[in-house]
């Protein structure tokens, strides 16, 4: 028994890696379809956008790169689906330097296929990437055309009907930053705190705990924390909009709800690791004390 405990405590990391691989890969191949429960920060984000009226403008900023796309993509897609369904207009930007614009283009292409009636320049615009995120945000408080003179295709934004109604960021109902790293936090400190436009954040799960401090301080409307937050949003969307319920049930593309199966299994496995590790640790401590 003692030998087993020692062995367990000194377990080769590669066994753990193998178990993690199997735990994540199996539910992707064989989906389980586990239920998702919703939390307050996601509900408040959802209800805020749900309460907008047709013609209102939502600013969606792609502030993440390909590395965290599986976690962040479903958030951006879900919020945009909600906006387009409610005829809320969308302004898209990308402030993360490595690959954010490519991701924004891909998501827009996907949404265009889902909502064939969308008109560029009227229902949505893509302002593209701009370097120097914090300086860009400060500039948005003065005038958007100063920060983004043209859209992603080089067209002057004065030619886009949607942008004529949004001279500065104050005219936007809410900013949704789907973020990794610090750019999401800058939307709060540079825009929410100094200009006043409400902000919803969709951070990666690892960054989410930090944003509860801002949520409690009333500087955030809501948080979509990691893949769980995205799955909750998808559930809320499906329950409120029957046309999307069908979509989320039948789509073959990756959704956060599907990803939650893998996340549930891996959480269970890690909890078992922690439990086993602690049992072995206590056993060895008792043995040391006995000696």
């Amino acid at each position: 028994m003692a030998g087993f405990v020692e062995k367990l405590l000194g377990l080769d990391r590669r066994w753990i890696f193998l178990l993690v691989l199997l735990s994540v890969a199996t539910p992707i191949v064989f989906p389980i379809g586990l239920p998702v429960t919703t939390s307050g920060p996601t509900r408040s984000a959802f209800e805020y956008i749900e309460a907008l009226t047709p013609g209102d403008v939502v600013w969606i900023s792609f502030d993440y790169g390909p590395s965290s796309a599986p976690e962040n993509d479903p958030m951006a897609e879900a919020v945009m689906r909600q906006c387009f369904l409610k005829k809320v207009r969308v302004v898209v930007t990308a402030l993360y330097p490595l690959g954010a614009l490519g991701i924004a283009n891909n998501v827009l292409a996907k949404l265009n296929a889902e909502f064939p009636g969308l008109r560029y320049g009227e229902d949505y615009v893509n302002l593209g990437y701009k370097d120097g995120a914090a300086a860009v945000m400060r500039r948005l408080g003065e005038d958007i055309s100063g920060a983004f003179p043209t859209d992603a295709n080089g067209r002057p934004i004065g030619e886009l009907p949607l942008m004529r109604d949004v001279p500065d960021i104050r005219h936007v109902k809410v900013i949704v930053t789907v973020a990794t790293g610090t750019i999401g936090e800058w939307w709060i400190t540079q825009v929410r705190a100094q200009i006043g436009t409400p902000v919803i954040i969709g951070p990666t799960a690892v960054s989410a705990p930090k944003y509860y401090a801002y949520l409690n301080a009333g500087q955030l409307v809501g948080i979509l924390g990691g893949m769980k937050g995205a799955a909750e949003y998808e559930k809320l969307l499906a329950s409120r909009h029957p046309e999307l319920a069908g979509f989320y049930r039948t789509t073959h593309t990756f959704t956060a709800t599907k990803g939650m199966d893998g996340q549930t299994v891996i959480h269970t496995v890690i909890l078992v690791f922690i439990l086993v590790g602690n049992l072995a640790y206590m056993k060895s401590r008792m043995k040391r004390r006995g000696a």
Binding site: I16, L19, V20, P66, M282
Partner: peptide, 22 residues
């Protein structure tokens, strides 16, 4: 990029097993 980021899941599990002790 995605591959290196995905390594986090493996390292998190091994770190939890090793370091998360009462």
């Amino acid at each position: 990029q995605s591959t290196i980021f995905a390594l986090l899941a493996f390292f998190m599990a091994s770190a939890a097993f090793r370091a998360f002790r009462a």
